[in-house]
Write a protein that binds this DNA or RNA. Structure first.
Length: 426
RNA sequence: GUGGCUGUAGUUCAAUGGCAGAGCACCGGAUUGUGGUUCCGGGCGUUGUGGGUUCGACCCCCAUCAGCCACCCCA
């Protein structure tokens, strides 16, 4: 059947068979983030283009090739947000949240947009969860941010992932290191792939990530970032690791982690799941000590991370961590005949107002048909009210697990429902 | 953005260039007010879309759209 209006490329519908998983993941993230003292912030889905161009970086692929940019009716340039940190910092500065001299801890969940060729784990609209800790350069917070992510994944039951950390130092260290890399690779320039020749000029650190065997071979002996950290950056990184150990978080130091957004300084980290194929990063983050200043605020350090919801979902499913939808009906109400409707509807309203998920289908006729339906929906109890029952002032309640059926006095009904509520809560 | 693989019923998949099929799901029935198991019955689908080759195309060719894989990028 040809679809008249197909969904845009790289987007997807989250259907009821999936949406409860999204709700579960989001509520778990909120719960964990709140336990660490983070508060939710909700920013617009679009911003002035400059918010991203001047922070994520003019030269980054995200800004150059992947941003959904558009003009409004007055010719102003906006962009659908490609990531979550820049908007949060924009908001932080705009509302002068640093005025209280406290460390501000914020989290968010929401859709992001990047124009890229779709693949499993990579779509044009995707959902990210993330958080930002703004106002302190204490290495404890570097570890705390990683700990929130780690705790979240563990709470979901995920086993198959690793934490990789690195420090790219302050801008001075990075500059020194870039020079060292250029010096190292320059003599080998003829052996490098064309991409890497470009990288050598634009962003030498990217060479370390190249998958071409020839480049890999050369970069194997390349100088390590960690040898180019100055004394204070070195101490900071060592302390981050100390705090991670105190928090009981296993990690790997990977000097080749290079983050793609320009604003990162010092600590950078990634959460990797190698069963995910090419899109193997569950999430990542790092410190951005110059970003608030770039947005016109006063010199304020910060650190944060973001993770992809869909990739997490794929990982959870690989590990079979979803057993099913727990939103099953408590009751299925079968009302037989028009005469019983006034009483039936009053009872159904009563159940629902007591927060019992109660199914009722006024169009389905016949007790057999409806029993079948109750069974398919996996209802716990079926309530049957026909004219015979109404005449005797009773209702039938059938336990769908063992097939036992009881007659209840209508007067006793509310009392019994109340007691059910108590027992299901305990 | 580059290269490759794929596209058939709600879904998972069949069908040498010669009448488009099966499992699951769904709907109906097996003496009228009781589910799950069983049995019986129920499918004319623009074979993603548009062209072309051919007596004849799900099958071959071209284009296009979409998904997937690798690159790239990163969540």
């Amino acid at each position: 059947m040809p679809v008249k209006y197909p969904i845009p490329r790289g987007t997807f519908d989250v259907l009821p068979s999936e949406s409860y998983k999204w709700e579960f993941i989001e509520s778990k993230f909120r719960q964990v983030a709140k336990a660490f003292g983070y508060k939710e912030i909700i920013t617009p889905i679009f911003e002035h283009s400059e918010v991203f161009e001047r922070s994520v970086g003019d030269s980054s692929d995200i800004v150059q090739k992947e941003m959904y940019k558009f003009q409004d009716k007055k010719g102003r340039s906006f962009a659908l947000r490609p990531e979550g940190t820049a908007p949060v910092i924009r908001s932080y500065v705009e509302h002068n949240m640093g005025a209280d001299n406290q460390t501000n801890k914020l989290f968010y969940i929401g859709p992001m947009f990047r124009y890229d060729r779709p693949q499993a784990g990579r779509s044009r609209q995707f959902s990210q969860y993330g958080l930002e800790c703004i106002g302190s350069n204490h290495p404890y917070y570097d570890a705390e941010v990683i700990q929130v992510f780690y705790t979240f994944l563990k709470e979901l039951g995920l086993k198959n992932f690793s934490v990789e950390i690195n420090s790219i130092g302050c801008p001075e260290c990075t500059e020194n290191y870039n020079q060292a890399l250029i010096q190292y690779f320059q003599p080998h320039i003829d052996e490098l792939c064309t991409d890497c020749r470009n990288r050598l000029e634009k962003n030498p650190k990217r060479l370390l990530d190249c998958k071409v065997t020839a480049c890999k071979k050369i970069s194997k002996e390349a100088p390590s970032m960690l040898d180019y950290l100055d004394e204070s950056c070195k101490v900071h990184f060592a302390q981050v690791q100390a705090y991670l150990t105190m928090a009981g978080i296993p990690y790997i130091v990977n000097p080749r982690i290079v983050r793609g957004l320009d604003y990162y300084t010092n600590t950078a980290f990634e959460f990797i799941n190698n069963n995910l194929g090419a899109q193997n990063a569950l999430g990542g983050g790092g410190r951005y000590n110059k970003l608030v200043e770039q947005f016109g605020g006063k010199d304020t350090p910060g650190i944060g991370f973001a993770g992809g919801l869909t990739r997490l979902l794929i990982s959870l499913e690989q590990e079979k961590l979803f057993m099913g939808d727990d939103n099953k009906p408590m009751f299925y109400f079968i009302a037989l005949g028009e005469k019983v409707m006034p009483v039936a509807i009053e009872m159904i309203s009563f159940l629902r107002s007591h927060k019992f998920y109660t199914e009722f289908d006024i169009e389905k006729k016949g007790i057999k048909n409806q029993m079948k339906n109750a069974n398919r929906l996996m209802c716990r109890y079926t309530l049957i009210l026909g004219e015979d029952e109404l005449a005797k002032n009773i209702i039938l309640m059938k336990d769908m697990l063992n097939g036992e059926q009881k007659e209840l006095n209508l007067e006793d009904f509310k009392v019994i429902i109340d007691s059910l509520k108590v027992s299901s809560q305990s």
